[in-house]
Design a protein around this nucleic acid. Sequence first.
DNA 1: TTATCGTGGATAGATTTTATCTGCAATAGG
DNA 2: CCTATTGCAGATAAAATCTATCCACGATAA
Lengths: 172, 172
Amino acid sequence: MKLGEGVEAAIHCAATLASVEGNSTMPGAALAESFGLSPSYLLKHLNMLTAARILESVPGPAGGYRLARAAERITLLDIVLAVEGREPAFRCGEIRRNGPVKLDASAYVKPCGINAAMLKAEAAYRAALAETKLSDIVATYAAEGDPRSLAASCAFVERHQRPQKPNPTTKV
Amino acid sequence: MKLGEGVEAAIHCAATLASVEGNSTMPGAALAESFGLSPSYLLKHLNMLTAARILESVPGPAGGYRLARAAERITLLDIVLAVEGREPAFRCGEIRRNGPVKLDASAYVKPCGINAAMLKAEAAYRAALAETKLSDIVATYAAEGDPRSLAASCAFVERHQRPQKPNPTTKV
DNA sequence: TTATCGTGGATAGATTTTATCTGCAATAGG
DNA sequence: CCTATTGCAGATAAAATCTATCCACGATAA
Ligand code: FES
Ligand code: FES
């Protein structure tokens, strides 16, 4: 059981974007530089977030990414599912049917208890992720983060964010 | 986020082994046949279960596998961790340090809030898995499973289990 | 017009998963 | 003792996935 490392990048980027003011945007290249990531590859993940309506993108010079809705309405589950896909981690191959004894399909109408137990555990995982909002992450960071790191992050955002015309296309 | 398909095989095999009587054993080849799996590959997973002290193995003819302890004392978490490894699914690469601004390591003594949130969710996942015992799986199957499937499973176990000498080496 | 930025596809290398095979040690049964 | 069966460790390879890069394209601000 392993999560791609894109999850860490995606959440950190979303948290950074939560700090940009108003409808300003931040280029993907700046986000990649902010975390020492490969720009080309990070764009893939940012793109998935955009497709999931978690981020909005603005093309053209002075364009970039911004949150598609308020940080209070974005959960870690949203981000994880957007990057890792919505399918459950446990995939039942119905191996109970593959034995030497061939039974009619009607014998397997009830879902396998093992599958049910695994999916129930995964539901608990997702529920825990859904409880944490992006705004919580930002608030915790602002409250407990090291002042030096905090100042550096603020300066970085200030330096790279690009104001946009008051053009609320899909605004909250 | 994906679990290897060995997890499904391992849990099903453990559930089957929970039905063998006393200290009898069942060969790995029979377990593989029971679920239509590759014998060579299934042995890898059974071996991990043995290394984790969830199963016991008996070499020699009439040998095989059996549970190392009562099914009531084996949880799904035990099996999943044995097969998939004990490391958390979310692996923090400390990308917060990789930005353009180089800060002293003392700025990162506190763990990243994102990492903490992800690990907390994973703890909930593991807790849910730890709540389900192998005996629960067997009991549910016996209560709700299709009678035909139930009979076939019993017959299969009856046919392949091999009694062992009363030699309780690592018995409960 | 130009330079910047996001999008999508193609591509390739690295890593992990899945699967098979072989030789070896253990041991029950003859 | 001999043989057949079984688990175990390691090498190996095929397949799938993850990671990373590149380029052509459309959009757009200046
Ligand atoms: S058949 Fe897939 S979990 Fe039981
Ligand atoms: S640095 Fe790894 S999760 Fe924040």
